[in-house]
Computed example of a mutant assay.
Amino acid sequence: MTISFKMNGKPVTCNSADDTPLLWVIRDELGLTGTKFGCGAALCGACTVHLDGAPVRSCQTPLASVAGKEVASIESLSSDNSHVLQKAWIAHDVPQCGYCQSGQLMSAAALLAENKNPSDSDIDNAMSGNICRCGTYPRIRAAIKSAAAELRTSK
């Protein structure tokens, strides 16, 4: 079956089976490898992308469910680390092994799209389910707060 949707703002058409996980369509069919496979059970958050602006786990999102919708992956933030969150991630030395980072950043981007002044509790709730094997959670929270402050002052 042919499924059409927007990927990072561009129209795409895919011919994979309806039940193919979106993760594999993004990586294998569309060639965007920033979104990572982690657990395959929607538990770790490494595969997080946005579906119509909301964070979803692409490893458990069937291709059929994105027909006519907007999907955004880590590649949509910036290609040169100029996005406010990417700059904050670097400034706070968040990445260690780096494997979870695309999912962490996409969850943080969804949070800041809705809340430019998140509390610690807001951040913890939005980021729950995004597992960092290196344990950089305090740095992640600090980076989100820095990015939020920059967003508030840049307007």
Rank of each mutant, 00 (worst) to 15 (best):
V12H: 02
T20F: 10
I3K: 01
L77A: 10
I90E: 08
N8S: 06
S73A: 12
I26H: 03
P55M: 13
V66F: 02
T13S: 15
L77I: 07
F5W: 02
P55S: 15
P55L: 14
P55V: 14
A17I: 02
L22M: 11
T2I: 13
W89P: 05
I90P: 01
Q60K: 08
H50Q: 05
A72L: 11
N15H: 12
V25Y: 09
E29Y: 11
L22Q: 04
S78F: 12
A67F: 08
G45K: 03
I74D: 08
A88W: 07
V71Q: 12
V25K: 11
A72N: 14
K87C: 10
W89T: 06
E75H: 06
I3S: 02
T61H: 03
H50Y: 02
L22I: 03
L30I: 02
S4D: 08
A64M: 11
N81M: 14
G34A: 07
T61N: 05
T48Y: 01
V84C: 05
T48F: 01
S16N: 04
F37E: 15
A46R: 02
T13G: 01
G31M: 11
A54H: 14
T20H: 07
G40R: 10
D52C: 10
A64T: 05
W24K: 10
C39W: 04
S78Y: 13
V49S: 13
G38E: 07
A91P: 03
A67G: 13
T35D: 09
L43V: 09
S4H: 07
D18T: 06
V56R: 14
C14W: 00
G38M: 06
R27N: 07
E75A: 09
D80T: 12
I3L: 01
A46Y: 01
K87I: 13
K87T: 14
F5V: 01
N8A: 07
C39A: 05
G31W: 07
T61M: 13
T2S: 08
L77W: 08
V71F: 13
T35R: 05
P21T: 05
C59E: 00
S58R: 03
C59R: 00
S79D: 15
V66D: 04
L63C: 04
D18S: 11
S82C: 08
S76G: 10
N8R: 08
C44K: 02
G31D: 11
P21A: 10
A17L: 10
S82I: 03
G40M: 10
I3M: 02
I90D: 06
G68K: 05
